[in-house]
Nucleic acid binder design. Structure first.
Lengths: 215, 215
DNA sequence: CGTCATCTTGATTACGCTCAAGCTCCGTGG
DNA sequence: CCACGGAGCTTGAGCGTAATCAAGATGACG
């Protein structure tokens, strides 16, 4: 089985999942900051962003927060590991989400494809988490912020990249404080690696320097 | 579908995987430090530790290393995200590993169970990676080391817990230096939270303090 | 235009890193 | 069995990066 073939099949699964969700799922809207699902809740649903953005996070008993990831239109979430949510999900901005019961998905796709599709989605989540581990474990503050911007830019096709999350969200994703994130953004701009157009929009000026920092 | 029932099914899948591997897999031995699979290699096999221990890791171009995880007897590894290994795996000590081609596993279990079993394994990996993110992002050096010891203790059933990895391995897992790891171990011992019997064996003295530090 | 949340910048502190020395454990050979 | 040697570990001193504390600046929204 060639790599190309497998990738193709993988993409098909993702597409199938989106198709089913578009067809069968309930369309819900959430206001900025609203909870979509809670930590330790049963993971009975699958979610897909159609408009806006979502963050997943966990908090420790003393309030320290770790953001697990951000999700944008067309991305599937709610699969964090098994039958109980280990993170909670919140609307980053006002947003629209497709919500589908897992059992309904299974009924429509059949057991086999259901498992294949969710396995593929779980693998993407795992890849994401592993990249996150790399960023958190062995990178400097500047590299963390650069990696984050590079990832955002990678997901966007436009020249100008929109940043829907606050500095606090970025900090809690990168294991930093808002002050440090702010300083690093300023520094990256001063050294002409990126250029900001307002607080939440940027574009990469020096691709090489960016790639070097983000590894 | 109750949680209990689902957990049971999950455990069955894990057991089935071990059974098939014991029956069909090739038993290989690796000397301490030997590579089991490489980064960016195709992930055509599934692995199960039978003796010794394994670590997975990634290195950045300048040599910084991030350890992804440690695997002990009966644990399955080699599933890190998709069709290409994103980490490499090395023998932590001399060890014995069951190796089985994925295609052979699929042929034996059938497509459906193959996917269910590997999905379950991928979910465990994801849960592991998510816990790792929490440790790396928002914990102090002391809490990181305590969390690590607590996790090790949790996997072991004996009172005295064996630690097969070096301080360097621990440091690269926790995003610290060996000096800091060493200092924290000393500190935990001085404050009577744990007690060491030699460099690589310990037991937890103060369970409450340990739980508090490890959250 | 005023108010409040968010963000930036500055000054200071502290946690963990770096560099350096010494110690312990363990394998090896005399 | 002990002496030697080397890797791995611990400890100490000093430093640097990012956290904390504290003001301001900017932007969003009524």
């Amino acid at each position: 089985m060639s790599l190309a073939f497998r990738s193709r099949a993988h993409d098909d699964d993702v597409q199938d999942l989106r198709d089913v969700m578009t067809r069968m799922a309930v369309r819900m809207t959430f206001a900025k900051g609203e909870e979509i699902y809670g930590q330790d809740e049963d993971a009975d649903f699958v979610y897909c962003v159609t408009r806006g953005a979502v963050r997943t996070a966990r908090v420790m008993s003393d309030g320290r927060r770790q953001v697990g990831g951000f999700y944008y239109p067309y991305e599937v979430f709610g699969l964090d590991a098994g039958h109980v949510h280990r993170f909670f999900a919140e609307a980053l901005s006002d947003c629209e989400i497709l919500v589908l019961k897992r059992s309904a998905l299974r009924a429509d796709l059949g057991q086999a494809q259901f498992e294949r599709v969710l396995w593929a989605a779980t693998q993407r989540e795992l890849a994401r988490a592993q990249d996150h581990v790399m960023i958190l474990g062995r990178k400097s503050a500047c590299e963390k912020v650069a990696s984050f911007l590079a990832e955002l830019a990678g997901r966007s096709d436009a020249k100008s990249v929109e940043m829907p999350m606050s500095r606090q969200d970025m900090a809690d994703y990168l294991g930093l404080t808002i002050e440090t994130v702010s300083r690093m953004l300023t520094q990256l701009q001063k050294s002409a690696v990126v250029e900001f157009a307002g607080l939440r929009s940027f574009r990469i000026c020096n691709t090489d320097a960016m790639a070097r920092l983000a590894e």
